[in-house]
């Protein structure tokens, strides 16, 4: 992403404070403590919404690797989410598999899906890639809707929630903590990846593909890795989503879902993890407060997205270029 010249502003000052490492630890610890305490001090409604926001944190972290780290626009990310959810739904329902056996299967299938769609298309120019992923997302949704095995338009119901060491994870608060743990793990993995050899390769490819290739980086393999890691995040989110709701249908994985996940990534600042978390909470919580305005809320969101792209293209809370 192009870096805008840093403007001194109140907002910039705040984000500068939040960006200093020592303060960051303090802020993280306080936030985490608040998140742990949250379900005990608020009512069930808030818990459910925040659980949903945490799911979006997981999904958006995955898409952030594809879009933010590797710089590839994926408009069909819900497809990986769907693969995860449907794998769990089908294997636990029809084959009587335990959730914990279904989960790795979901990850495997999503990775395979990532490789299948990535291998032929990652050589394409970026706008072709965007539309191919869009088409791919629609193919997955339509397939889920048309096949008998996936339950057609009504989907799969009665998916059993998992047991952990004899404890049945089933209440809303249980799932709140499941998604909180997933989100925290997801953040740790994302941070570690960004600072890894692969993470640096992504950064390089994003900034200048040709130069990266000249330096010996296999750009197709590096992009494919981003795709697969993103797919894994998506499928894990999908698997727990299916276990949480107990019912899935094709319309949970439509283009609108893909766009919402993308919005989370862009809103908070492409490539930056605190931005992704912030974005997830804005995208999921804002519509709850905007319920009164009905269908208009999607329009407000779209206008917001456009304004951000035009006036603050690196997001509300952009990544500061350290290198």
């Amino acid at each position: 992403m192009a870096q805008l010249p840093e403007r001194p502003s109140a907002w910039g000052g705040l984000s500068a404070i939040l960006d200093t490492p020592t303060k960051q630890w303090t802020v993280t610890a306080v936030l985490l403590a608040a998140m742990v305490a949250l379900p005990f001090v608020t009512d069930g409604y808030i818990t459910v919404i925040v659980t949903h926001a945490l799911l979006y944190v997981v999904l958006a972290l995955g898409l952030n690797i594809v879009v933010g780290y590797a710089g590839l626009l994926d408009l069909g990310f819900a497809a990986f989410f769907a693969v995860g959810a449907y794998t769990v739904g089908i294997t636990t329902q029809y084959f009587g598999l335990n959730f914990w056996l279904a989960l790795p299967l979901a990850v495997v299938f999503a990775s395979i899906a990532g490789i299948i769609i990535g291998t032929p298309t990652l050589r394409l120019r970026s706008d072709y890639l965007a539309i191919v992923t869009l088409g791919f997302g629609e193919i997955v949704r339509l397939t889920a809707r048309n096949l008998r095995e996936t339950g057609g338009a009504s989907g799969i119901r009665g998916i059993e929630s998992p047991w952990i060491f004899g404890y049945h994870v089933q209440s809303n608060i249980d799932f709140y903590f499941v998604f909180l743990i997933l989100a925290v793990l997801g953040i740790i993995v994302s941070v570690r990846l960004a600072n890894s050899r692969l993470g640096r390769a992504w950064l390089y490819v994003r900034h200048d593909e040709d130069a990266a290739e000249a330096m010996g980086i296999d750009r197709v393999r590096v992009k494919l890795a981003a795709y697969v890691v993103g797919a894994i995040y998506g499928s894990i989110g999908g698997a727990f989503f299916a276990a949480n709701l107990g019912a899935i249908s094709p319309e949970s994985f439509s283009f609108r879902q893909s766009v919402e996940i993308l919005m989370v990534v862009i809103l908070g600042g492409i490539g930056k993890i605190p931005g992704v978390v912030l974005g997830a909470f804005i995208v999921i919580l804002a519509p709850e407060f905007l319920r009164g305005v009905g269908d208009l809320r999607y329009f407000i969101f779209a206008v917001g997205l456009l304004l951000i792209m035009l006036f603050r293209p690196s997001g509300i809370w952009p990544a500061r270029s350290k290198r």
Partner: peptide
């Protein structure tokens, strides 16, 4: 490239959701 693609997507969402409303 990425910014302009997302901008184009945003324009399409504005039109689509404007008509939805």
């Amino acid at each position: 490239r990425l910014s302009i693609l997302i901008t184009a997507l945003a324009v399409s969402l504005v039109l689509q959701n404007g008509m939805l409303a």
